[in-house]
Amino acid sequence: MVFILAIEIKDVLRIIDITDFFSRALRERKIGKILELLQLLASSGVISNEELTELSIELMELLKLEGEELEERIEELERKIKVLVIDRSIKSSEEAILSKLHSRIEFLASSGVISNNELLKLSIELMELSKLEGEEFKEKAKEIEKRIEKYVRGNRRALHR
């Protein structure tokens, strides 16, 4: 009886050990995943090398933590990365909009739909847009888009030729 009990305690201890092993593995896996994400963001140019270093140090600090505190800090870090990515995409989206409008105006010019004078007018409007940011930028961009659309609608036949 004593012998059997001893085995059971050993098993329980092993289970505790395994649980601990799995929780550590899970923690390291989560941290590893975040690190992988950071490296991806850095290599695609979304975050700078300095930001990668700073965030990686923050991530390594998490290895010292456990339990609820660890979960909270992981969530906090994930939020921070998310905000950073959203912020970057908004910033570069203005250039993306400018680029899109630029290409549409270029298309109108190359298909002969707009005259040189109209091209200069639209180019000046696009220049005025590039001075703006945020909401003002969005509104002005919509205005220019509508103007381009008017040219397209008015010249649909010419554009399909």
Binding site: L98, H102, A109, S110, N116, L119, L120, S123, S130, K131
Partner: peptide
């Protein structure tokens, strides 16, 4: 560039 006029916007954005 092919259409010189179109330089205005990227130039302005660059300056800003």
């Amino acid at each position: 560039p092919r259409f010189i006029e179109l330089i205005l916007s990227p130039l302005q954005r660059f300056f800003i």
